[in-house]
Design a protein around this nucleic acid. Structure first.
Lengths: 139, 139
DNA sequence: GATTCCATTGCAACCGGGTTGCGGCATATA
DNA sequence: TATATGCCGCAACCCGGTTGCAATGGAATC
């Protein structure tokens, strides 16, 4: 576990460093895709659900992670790509297969952003396409 | 209540007509925007939650209505625009204000659809932008 | 007309993700 | 050392959604 890297990043975001916050951030950074609260609970079995919850809450408020609602009923979390700021450009496309109920993370397809009516300002985008994935289409 | 119109539409979709289904469909058609299960429960106080739930399930399966997950924790329902088929073109943009927690239905902005990798086929799009709405921006 | 069958519905209970109150412990501040 | 503040675990709670089951009712069959 890269303790140092986590500590630095928390510092830079102005988040007080604690052992649990390091654990959670480390797990998120190591994860290949997104992680749900339940995923983190499983991964960090010594840490209480509510602590993880509150940690994620803080991370999100400080734009260290962002959440994706893929419509499966459990919100997913992901470390923001850019080190210093979490921009809308970080938001990419997700695909949910209605057959096998898996969520795919299409990292290289960034979520489109439409022109909004006067007065609306966007801070994040939740873009999820539902349909049938390749392997379910074949079989 | 336009009983006839509802009955016809149910018929055309191959959905067996029942009093409750007429009530639910009528409420949805009359609604200015989207409705949640809870909204319908309030509107149709004589009808049980589970009955509404199952009715919506059937409606959705027959592509008479579609659901939108706006990230508020309660799924919204909406009658498909086109009479005969519910196409992806029906899906429009939704905006969720992080300050006042309201969901706006931007009916005239259709949800964009990105090119998916080989093998993925899209059946619906869930596109929701989060940010600050005009009245909250004003302060 | 009587009987059988199956879809529909209401009720109540359940489920699971998320959230909160609170008390204890640790850490910081005076 | 005394005092405040923040962090954490536990347990309980909340709420939207979902399911099992029994009763009802209408259509199909005898």
């Amino acid at each position: 576990m890269d303790n140092r890297k986590c500590t630095d990043r928390l510092d830079r975001k102005g988040i007080r460093v604690t052992p649990i916050r390091i654990l959670v951030l480390d797990a998120l950074m190591k994860a290949s895709g997104t992680m749900s609260l339940a995923d983190l609970e499983t991964e960090l079995e010594t840490v209480d659900k509510s602590s993880i919850f509150r940690t994620l809450e803080i991370f999100e408020k400080h734009h260290l992670v962002h959440s994706i609602d893929d419509g499966t009923g459990s919100v997913k979390f992901e470390v923001c790509e850019s080190e210093d700021d979490c921009s809308i450009a970080d938001m990419h496309t997700h695909f949910y297969c209605e057959i096998c109920h898996k969520t795919f993370c299409l990292k290289d397809i960034s979520a489109p952003l439409v022109d909004l009516p006067e007065g609306f300002s966007a801070r994040s985008v939740n873009y999820i396409i539902k349909g049938v994935c390749p392997s379910c289409a074949r079989g």
